[in-house]
Amino acid sequence: MGFLSVLSQAQRWVKERTLPGDIAVDATAGNGSDTLFLARTVGPKGTVFAFDIQAEALESTRRRLESEAMQEELATVALVREGHENMSEAIPVERHGRIAAVMFNLGYLPGAESDVITHPASTLAALESALRMLRPGGIVTVVVYPGHEGGQTEADAVSSWAEAVSPAIAQTVVYRFPQKLYSPYLIALNKK
């Protein structure tokens, strides 16, 4: 049996640190995989905020949630058409410091134009906001994709940012497959 994929490992770590009724954030909604995972994990008493700048991504996420909601109860999900760097303004202040998990899946929307990508400046601003809004024991997961145009630059920026986070604030970890040079890898922070 092999190791978990980076996406599965991110979900595993999030699931270990969240409870039914929690608040969670999908910082990059994309096609809605992480949004659905979070909506299931925090359950019908929980709340999920899902961010994306592309209407197509939010529509895909909405359809995925509606399809699954017919079979199971999910969290309340707010689909927010904003860049993730604006999450602290878009999420009500009374929820700051109470968020259990924030998931990032960087790069571009699968199946869409690959020229719309996440960028280091907005991603780093979003990561700073995410870390501030987490509750103690909360987690941030970031899946980076060094194999696409601009991906290595963003992956390096996220890695440098994570390395610079004080151990008094959060523990950081990198989960990657070093035999696959340009494969996606996971950076995670667990807030103290």
Results as ranks from 00 to 15, higher is better:
residue 2 G to N: 10
residue 2 G to T: 11
residue 3 F to E: 01
residue 4 L to F: 14
residue 6 V to T: 15
residue 11 Q to Y: 07
residue 12 R to D: 01
residue 13 W to D: 00
residue 15 K to G: 00
residue 17 R to G: 03
residue 23 I to R: 04
residue 24 A to Y: 10
residue 29 A to K: 06
residue 30 G to Q: 06
residue 30 G to D: 01
residue 36 L to S: 08
residue 40 R to F: 14
residue 42 V to S: 13
residue 43 G to M: 12
residue 46 G to F: 12
residue 47 T to A: 04
residue 51 F to A: 07
residue 52 D to L: 09
residue 57 A to W: 13
residue 59 E to F: 07
residue 62 R to N: 12
residue 62 R to Q: 14
residue 62 R to G: 03
residue 64 R to T: 03
residue 65 L to W: 12
residue 65 L to H: 12
residue 66 E to H: 12
residue 67 S to C: 06
residue 68 E to A: 15
residue 68 E to S: 14
residue 69 A to W: 09
residue 71 Q to C: 04
residue 71 Q to W: 12
residue 71 Q to F: 15
residue 72 E to L: 11
residue 76 T to G: 05
residue 78 A to H: 15
residue 82 E to G: 02
residue 83 G to W: 03
residue 87 M to P: 03
residue 89 E to V: 09
residue 89 E to L: 14
residue 91 I to E: 06
residue 92 P to G: 08
residue 92 P to R: 09
residue 93 V to G: 04
residue 93 V to N: 04
residue 94 E to F: 14
residue 95 R to M: 15
residue 103 M to W: 01
residue 104 F to C: 02
residue 104 F to W: 09
residue 105 N to I: 09
residue 107 G to C: 10
residue 107 G to L: 04
residue 109 L to G: 09
residue 109 L to W: 11
residue 111 G to E: 10
residue 114 S to A: 15
residue 114 S to F: 03
residue 114 S to W: 05
residue 115 D to P: 00
residue 116 V to K: 15
residue 121 A to F: 01
residue 122 S to K: 10
residue 125 A to W: 04
residue 129 S to D: 14
residue 130 A to H: 03
residue 132 R to D: 01
residue 135 R to V: 07
residue 135 R to Q: 08
residue 136 P to T: 05
residue 137 G to C: 07
residue 140 V to N: 02
residue 143 V to D: 03
residue 149 E to W: 07
residue 150 G to K: 06
residue 154 E to N: 11
residue 158 V to D: 01
residue 160 S to F: 04
residue 160 S to H: 10
residue 162 A to F: 14
residue 165 V to S: 07
residue 167 P to I: 08
residue 170 A to H: 03
residue 174 V to D: 00
residue 176 R to P: 01
residue 178 P to C: 06
residue 178 P to V: 01
residue 179 Q to S: 13
residue 180 K to P: 00
residue 182 Y to D: 12
residue 183 S to P: 02
residue 185 Y to L: 08
residue 189 L to R: 01
residue 190 N to G: 03
residue 191 K to R: 14
residue 192 K to N: 04
